[in-house]
Amino acid sequence: MDKTYKKGISPESPDAKKPGGKIHKKKKLTEAPRHIAQAVWTAVTNSYIAGFLKGRIYQGDLKKNCVPGMNCYSCPGALGSCPIGAMQAVVGSSGFKFSIYAVGFLTLIGALIGRFVCGWLCPFGLFQDLLHKIPFPKKIKTFRGDKLLRLLKYVIFAVFVILLPMFLTNDFGNGSPYFCKLICPVGTAMAGIPLLILNESMRALAGFLFRWKLAILIITITLSILIYRPFCKYICPLGAVYSLFNRISVFKYRLDETKCVGCGACSCVCKMNDDPTKNCNDLECIRCGLCKKACPTDAITYGFVSGVVKAGKSKLVEPIKPDKPADA
């Protein structure tokens, strides 16, 4: 949905002037390109059509490879594996107690693009984005305890993805994927519901656990209409891992302080409630690019390490400031 930002200092105000004095017009903010990219990626990574037709899953060799986003490997169309599911499978197996493979994958993707995955490559992110477009009289931007609640995803990662599968094992030394089993609404939405619709024998097996997970999914859907991406903000262990790489990833955002006029347009449009002028690679930034589009002076840029920083503007080398003011 196209819209223009309204809050903060207007780009037409005298404060929102470029150093050269040119006043910038309001910008149209469209998220269509991002949603198209999300949809294309979701379609490509879930393109096993026979699965949807016959109510079964893909069983080929590609499944040993992980995909970057939350994409349940039991989705009838899934060609790859969810990294969180893969990690729990290895950690919970009797042969291995640590997954170098999954941790390496998360490190590689995180260090390369950070939470760009959340904004552009996650099927469940797209699902929540679309849900939040459903009109509702009073959308919730933030609430008391919002920042504290965002720490929950790190706890969930440590407890349900690592510790429980590692230590709560059966007599054979195998642990369950506790996050998938008890919490993950992605599996219910992408795999549970389609498979139960398509497969009669599975329908007969659905019991308390399915109803529990269905309840979590319904709560997630309801909250997604009211709050932007509640699962990503508070629950997602994958987002928790990628967030730790945001500041150091090869692909990152940059703020040119010489161009920034402090109009606040970037923080006004940020749906994750970040302030790019304080930290444009914040833990919560999903790199949707709205702040860049909203900036009236093009002070926010993004790109890979060697591709964006222009000579003379790099923050790697800071000029020495004079000891005394020039007017002394």
Binding site: R56, I57, Y58, Q59, G60, D61, K63, K64, N65, C66, C72, Y73, S74, S81, G85, A86, A89, V90, S93, G95, F96, S99, I100, Y101, A102, V103, G104, F105, T107, L108, S176, P177, C180, K181, C184, G187, T188, A191, G192, L195, L196, M202, L205, A206, G207, L209, F210, W212, K213, L214
Partner: peptide
């Protein structure tokens, strides 16, 4: 490097063996 090491350590085979079966826990009937 970790992905390649883990792959040849046999972890990819564990992932594959889990991923080619319907994960009953994931869909909520396990």
């Amino acid at each position: 490097a970790a992905v390649i090491f883990g792959y040849y350590r046999g972890e990819a085979a564990v992932v594959l063996s889990k991923a080619v079966m319907v994960c009953l826990e994931c869909i909520g009937i396990g």
